[in-house]
Amino acid sequence: MENTALNIDQTPRSPKVSFDPATGTLEVSGESYPEDASLFYGPILKTLKGWLSDEDGPSVTVDIRLIYFNSSSAKAIMNMFQMLEEAAEDGRSVTVNWHYDADDDAMEEMGEDFSEDFESATFNLKPDLTA
């Protein structure tokens, strides 16, 4: 099992990423439109894939709190979601929480679109009502 924690600081163009393999928690927050999305998300996907390879690992909770992302980031996020769905199909408990501002219809719709690809994992739409 890959036990590498990830902590990537937020920049004006890329999100904060925090992954704790001991607890199975991954958080992605901020804006995501890096110059090269595959370069940015590659290490994240590689670490997650390695960690998910241990079928007896702990449950996974992913919290996505993005306020904006571009199409290349959407593809990387979809790749991550496909990995998580496959892990859920293999018996891992996977929960994805899609957090969005309650007034942001576009981010709500993106969450709804992503949720349609989940059958085995749990996908929760979580509006932030405090904004």
Rank of each mutant, 00 (worst) to 15 (best):
T11P: 03
W51H: 10
S14F: 06
S59M: 08
T25I: 09
F40H: 02
G30P: 05
A22H: 10
Y33D: 03
S32V: 08
G24V: 09
F19T: 14
Y33C: 01
E55I: 07
W51I: 06
D36H: 11
D56W: 06
P15G: 04
T25W: 03
G24C: 09
S53A: 15
E31V: 13
S59T: 09
G42L: 11
S32K: 10
I44W: 02
K46P: 05
L45W: 01
G24K: 10
Y33E: 05
E27T: 13
L26R: 02
L48Q: 00
S14Y: 07
P43L: 05
D56G: 15
L52C: 04
G30A: 04
K49A: 14
T47R: 11
T61E: 15
A37N: 05
Y41S: 01
V62L: 13
E27G: 01
I44E: 05
P12D: 15
P58V: 09
G42Q: 10
K49H: 12
Y41T: 01
E31N: 09
E31P: 04
L45S: 06
F40Q: 04
V62R: 07
W51G: 06
Y41D: 02
E35T: 14
L52W: 02
G30M: 04
T61I: 13
A22R: 10
P15N: 03
L48P: 00
F19A: 12
E31L: 09
I64S: 09
V28M: 15
P58S: 14
I44Q: 04
T47F: 06
G57E: 08
P15I: 02
G24N: 12
V62P: 08
D54I: 06
G24L: 11
S32E: 12
P34R: 01
L52V: 07
T47D: 10
A22D: 13
R13E: 14
Y41F: 15
S18K: 14
T61R: 15
G30Q: 04
F19I: 13
E35D: 15
T11C: 01
E31C: 10
L48Y: 00
G50K: 01
Y33A: 01
S32I: 07
V28Q: 07
I64A: 09
A22W: 03
L45Q: 08
K49N: 14
R65C: 12
P43N: 06
T11L: 02
